[in-house]
């Protein structure tokens, strides 16, 4: 074997390996991005969830928290916040709820996606318990209170006086199309 060939082959191998690694890097950007979001609160993604340690309640300070409900397109549920606005003290546990109602004639599953604005505030809004942690199934014509327990970190920067918390409701009914078509087909024959 000629040395040039060996040299070429080695270099090709290295370059091909870097290409393969960069392909992997493309996928690695996904978790990296999540970390980045968590640090910066990009897009108001709230990743820090679950129970938090007891915090000192800052009585002197009040923060306005607005609740928004958004239905993604093709999501027919009635979905709204029970109170559109709350005033809370940082560190204080706050219980509130959203209400969802499935007006259709079929069983459906929804997933609520939270988002916080300003994005800087996202990391200071701890959701202790949230309906958005789980998928929410509702029978036809069924309605439900969906509780949300949150607490605002007293470390919230002073210039933030208003926090907006939005939930977007997505239809994630499994095997969506087939199930729905079946439902509709049966309804058509029975009616």
């Amino acid at each position: 074997m000629e040395p040039l060939k060996v040299k070429n082959r080695r270099l090709v191998g290295r370059l091909a390996l870097s290409a393969a690694l960069m392909f992997g890097f493309g996928f690695a950007l996904v978790p990296l991005y999540d970390v980045f979001c968590e640090i910066t609160g990009l897009n108001g993604k709230v990743t820090r969830n679950g129970p938090v340690s007891e915090m000192a309640i800052d009585e002197a300070r009040s923060v306005r928290v607005q609740m928004i409900a958004v239905n993604n397109e093709s999501m027919p549920w009635a979905f709204r916040a029970d109170s559109s606005e709350l005033v809370v003290h940082p560190g204080q546990d706050q219980l509130t709820s959203y209400h969802a109602f499935n007006p259709t004639g079929r069983w459906m599953v929804a997933q609520a996606i939270p988002s916080v604005s300003p994005s800087e505030a996202a990391q200071y809004l701890h959701k202790v318990n949230c309906f958005c942690f789980e998928q929410q199934p509702l029978q036809a014509q069924e309605g439900r209170e969906m509780p949300l327990l949150f607490v605002i970190d007293p470390a919230l920067p002073a210039h933030i006086q208003t926090i907006t918390l939005s939930y977007t409701l997505f239809d994630i009914t499994p095997a969506q199309r087939t199930a729905m078509n079946l439902q509709q087909a049966t309804r058509r024959t029975t009616l």
């Binding site: 239905n71 397109e73 093709s74 027919p76 007006p103 259709t104 058509r188």
Partner: peptide, 22 residues
């Protein structure tokens, strides 16, 4: 069927361009 027609206009049809007009 009129019910099906109402349903598709009011609630849209998932997976298609048909929106819910509710």
């Amino acid at each position: 069927d009129i019910e099906a027609h109402i349903d598709i206009v009011v609630n849209g049809k998932a997976g298609t361009a048909m929106q819910a007009f509710k």
